[in-house]
Design a binder for these strands. Structure first.
Lengths: 196, 196, 196, 196
DNA sequence: CGGTAAGCGAGACGGTACGTCGCGTCTTAAG
DNA sequence: CTTAAGACGCGACGTACCGTCTCGCTTACCG
């Protein structure tokens, strides 16, 4: 059989260009940051025309949001059998994503965009934080069943506190103590355990 | 002995222009935000030539940093006689500064600048957060003497957690519950009191 | 063999913009003169962005040179049947071009540019003076055949003298006698006729 | 009666600064030309403040005019005993002044300024050309008395023609034959002598 | 001889124009 | 009908000079 698919004239590169654009955007985001990254540069590096980008995204923010979104890895709720094991896994996972040049840029862009363009923060919240918050709730539920923590402890509040302190450490990186200890001390305080 | 500092030759820089520039920068920052604010617009509103701005600041960030810096008001440690009274005063003070268009822009700019220009975050930390952290320690010390809280509670950790949660709320403003209650619940949790 | 000239890729430059730029440049040149004419003003009047101008011309001089070049009209050798008739036609033609605001600006720019940018004068010479010089030679040849002038009179030298005196009158306009009489007296002298 | 003019109160203007300004102006005029020469550069090179320049001259043109004026050397009517000897002396004198970078700039500036600022050309005419025109008339008068030329030859017209042709040659330097021969041929033609 | 008024170098001032860069859109030719 | 290429109108950028002004200091004269 010869090719029966007579696809509409000329769209074969679509996926390829798409990937090249996202790749170039991510590279440049990590290299020079959001502000200094130009659409022209992305197009050139991706070997793509500017309209090809604008056909897909209305703005730089949209493009970058999608680029960041595209490289999110599979997310699984850890289940190591103990509360602290699960927590370590969650924190490591978050730290690996956040405390890199790309992660910093992501957060920076999101924050600086947030006031003028709240839906961008919304996207980040929904796509990224929400699942982790729910995962955290699952971890907490298991811990409660194991009697590792009190039954009335609000997992969302704890999660938000941890997220906040990570954000805080991200911003004032050089001026605060190492992040790990910070988070550990916080959790011990919240869980009413003596620091180990 | 006379002062060793000699006034430099030439016409001194106009303090009046300086003020006008800072004023215009703050106004525009609050009105349109950092990104949409042009140096031309600042110069025009301040009734000043562009070079007069560039003579003082190498970049928009430097200018805005100085503008923000210039409008920090006097800071006093509250002493209402009770822990929660003091805390309310501190939180209100922080909220008044942070949860305004100008405050949001300040934080946004600071964060987006932080990775490429860490000393900017450093300045914010030193000039703004540090004093409040110390004030918080004083308030805690008084509360401990009144036996309102446990003696081993680390005020810095609590302060950083509160700061973090405020930052978090600032970024994800629309997606979380109202800030006040959030902070109150957090503090009750940390201070091991039942929510009132 | 096919044409070796390939049309370059991308959107071609707009002939419409090109015309508008030249038109605006000529207008402003005549209105305010070369020095007081800004590229911004040209762009605005032409309804065109500044980069569109700079894409075509590296400097104001280049632009103006092209603008002037673009409005050179068709040139025909006069043939009135008598030497003086032809000469009158030539001089009138030259005067109409030169002794106008635009003409003055043209010559002024050319001269002030000449030392730093000799090829500009070269262009003017080749495109404008050369044809007239040749026309003058033709007129002279006809006059010689009619025995109106001596056979050994060098038309180029006479032409250059006339051109020189016109230039001289252009520069020192207010301080010399009216041009027409000047040129007439000169020609009578050169042609060894008594002034009529 | 002694001088009724009272010297004005206050510190008199420094002759030294004056000289330095003129010197710097001439150097820069020859080096970079009128347009690319900035008052700032003149002030810096002269080791002088800008107001010191503006106190003396209202504009760049005025300054440059004075600078050029200041370096005019003594002018004497040649009297070699023969017409052609005198003419050679006059032409050499003119050529020495005109066909140098500084001379070209002078003429260029004058011409480009002439239309917007005719009095500048007027100054050049009065201070520079007028004396030479008169000298030329004297030389002609002597030649007529020696019967070297016809009595009815108008020295002013001849002078203007020579001036014009020199101007012409200055502008179209590269495109015409060497100046000397040109002028000689012209004169022979005007004086009705066969070219020697 | 001491006051004083103008000149001095330096350089900041409000402006204007410069030439460049990036935006997001439009227009080609090629496939 | 999409692509790569690239020109378009727009507008902000940061720089260079303009001509004026304000400093703190001479410097020469005049009372």
């Amino acid at each position: 059989m010869s090719k029966p698919v007579k696809s509409p004239p000329g769209r074969p590169r679509s996926a390829q260009s798409h990937q090249a654009i996202l790749q170039a955007a991510l590279e440049l985001l990590a290299e020079v940051g959001f502000d200094r990254m130009s659409i022209d540069a992305i197009a050139t590096r991706a070997g793509v025309g500017k309209p090809t980008i604008y056909r897909r995204y209305k703005s730089k923010q949209e493009l970058v949001a999608d680029a960041i979104e595209s490289c999110r890895q599979e997310y699984v709720v850890p289940d190591t059998g103990s509360l602290w094991g699960d927590i370590d896994a969650l924190i490591n996972s978050a730290a690996q994503i956040t405390f890199t040049p790309l992660g910093r840029q992501t957060v920076a862009m999101m924050i600086s965009t947030a006031s003028s363009n709240p839906q961008f923060a919304q996207v980040y919240w929904t796509k990224y934080l929400q699942p982790r918050r729910q995962a955290f709730a699952v971890v907490f539920e298991r811990a409660k069943q194991r009697n590792e923590i009190q039954a009335d402890l609000d997992p969302d509040l704890v999660f938000d506190l941890i997220s906040g302190i990570m954000l805080y450490a991200l911003v004032f990186q050089a001026t605060t103590e190492p992040l790990e200890g910070y988070i550990r001390r916080t959790l011990h305080l919240l869980l009413r355990e003596p620091p180990s």
